[in-house]
């Protein structure tokens, strides 16, 4: 069978589908001061998954927490990678209390594209990954 670390090189999704892969990728991102990118990506997935079993109040609280931590500060690593239109859409949703499970989808896609084009290829060439393999 293919060892997991070879699978990680196939796609970002194969990497993010494996606990050890996530851990190593996060260690790399932390070195580069951009672990928030990964945390935000998982926060968006988690937010979407909670739609059926969580009350509205908790969803609102969570949406506000994600907005405050990753999007509100324009100098944050996540905020800088998200398009202004996407940010104002999310801000609108939070302000008008229009909480929708898909409200972070576009922002998540933008961060994912950035990771696919930038941090993920860098990770595959990094010492941290090469040493692990």
């Amino acid at each position: 069978p293919t060892p997991p670390y070879l699978k990680w090189a196939e796609s970002l999704h194969s990497l993010l589908d494996d606990q050890d892969g996530i851990h190593l990728f996060r260690t790399f991102l932390k070195q580069e001061d951009c672990a928030d990118l990964l945390d935000f990506w998982f926060a968006c997935s988690g937010f979407r998954k909670q739609e059926n079993n969580e009350g509205n109040e908790k969803m609102l609280k969570l949406a506000k927490a994600i907005y405050k931590k990753y999007i509100l500060d324009n100098n944050g690593i996540v905020s800088r990678q998200i398009k202004p239109a996407t940010k104002s859409f999310i801000k609108d949703c939070v302000m008008k209390l229009h909480i929708d499970p898909a409200m972070f989808d576009q922002a998540q896609t933008e961060i994912q594209t950035m990771m696919e084009e930038n941090t993920y290829p860098l990770f595959l060439k990094s010492d941290i990954y090469l040493e692990y393999t």
Binding site: D17, Q19, F42, A43
Partner: peptide, 20 residues
């Protein structure tokens, strides 16, 4: 009442794959 950070952390963990 959960703090915002706890809530976020819980949300992030819920999206991670389970140990194989």
């Amino acid at each position: 009442i959960d703090s915002e950070d706890d809530l976020l952390q819980e949300c992030i963990s819920s999206a991670m794959p389970k140990k194989k």
